[in-house]
């Protein structure tokens, strides 16, 4: 009756081999030690900084919207216009690219070309693109507009293509069997299936573009980022706090209204 074992250990789930498991654990530990060791911290500088950090937190809690309001509003307008124009242009370009990058409806050379465009756009960081475009087009929102449009193409193009590749084949077949042309097929079989997703993605990208517009200003591509950079350089933490609060508020409004808009459109 009591011949059952009295001990039980949970069998390892991910790596069943004991030696490999221990090796992986040791490797992870060694890496962590080395990585933490490579962080050289100048504690003097950090402790000095704590006082500045305190000032920043105070600035965040008591933001100063007024004394730099001219710069802030100028930066905001630049950022917002840049966001909208780049999203519209980016989406318009990414629609043909996305269609071209869908394996199931285009010939192979077109597919490869469009996928390559998407891959380049996705693998280049917005900030790096911005550096180059600022060098070419000069400082100001136009370089920012180009950067964000370029990034939008990769983002929307990829997700749109993935969506088209997953459309219900039977609907495409049904429309094709009526003798419809390629464009009619696109219009009747594919478009209805992907439209809600495209709208959702565009709104999402609008949100991302606004956030990114705050970043690329740091390298001179205009917008609220430039204002923020200046404020931090001048140690005006109360103005910087105000700018950050405005960014957070706009992102929250954008997120809330885009979810509302998506519900409304469906």
């Amino acid at each position: 009756m009591s011949s059952y074992p009295t001990t039980w250990r949970r069998p390892p789930q991910i790596i069943p081999d004991r030696r490999l498991r221990i090796a992986v654990q040791i490797a992870a530990l060694v890496y962590l030690v080395l990585a933490v060791g490579s962080v050289e911290v100048n504690w003097m500088r950090v402790s000095e900084g704590l006082e500045r950090g305190q000032r920043f937190v105070m600035g965040f809690l008591q933001p100063d919207f007024t004394s730099r309001w001219g710069d802030i509003s100028q930066g905001l307008i630049e950022s917002l216009t840049m966001t909208l124009t780049s999203t519209v242009v980016g989406v318009l370009i990414s629609i043909p690219i996305g269609i071209g990058a869908s394996r199931n409806i285009v010939p192979r050379p077109v597919y490869l070309f469009c996928r390559a465009v998407i891959a380049i756009s996705r693998s280049l960081q917005e900030l790096i693109v911005a550096i180059f475009l600022v060098a070419m087009f000069g400082f100001g929102p136009f370089a920012g507009f180009l950067t964000l449009s370029f990034a939008t193409i990769g983002f929307i193009g990829k997700l749109l293509a993935d969506e088209i590749e997953e459309v219900d084949e039977t609907q495409v077949e049904a429309i094709r069997s009526t003798g419809a042309s390629w464009f009619q097929m696109l219009n009747y079989a594919v478009q209805p299936q992907i439209m809600p997703r495209l709208i959702g993605l565009s709104l999402y990208r609008l949100d991302i573009n606004f956030r990114e517009s705050a970043v690329i200003g740091i390298v001179g591509a205009g917008g609220i980022g430039a204002t923020l950079n200046t404020a931090i350089d001048r140690y005006e933490y109360d103005s910087a706090g105000a700018i950050l609060l405005i960014i957070i508020a706009i992102v929250m409004v954008a997120e809330y209204s885009s979810s509302y808009l998506r519900k409304f459109l469906q």
């Binding site: 009591s2 059952y4 074992p5 009295t6 001990t7 039980w8």
Partner: peptide
């Protein structure tokens, strides 16, 4: 051990 035995 009692619990484990009983579970088995």
């Amino acid at each position: 051990p009692r619990d484990i035995q009983r579970a088995y």
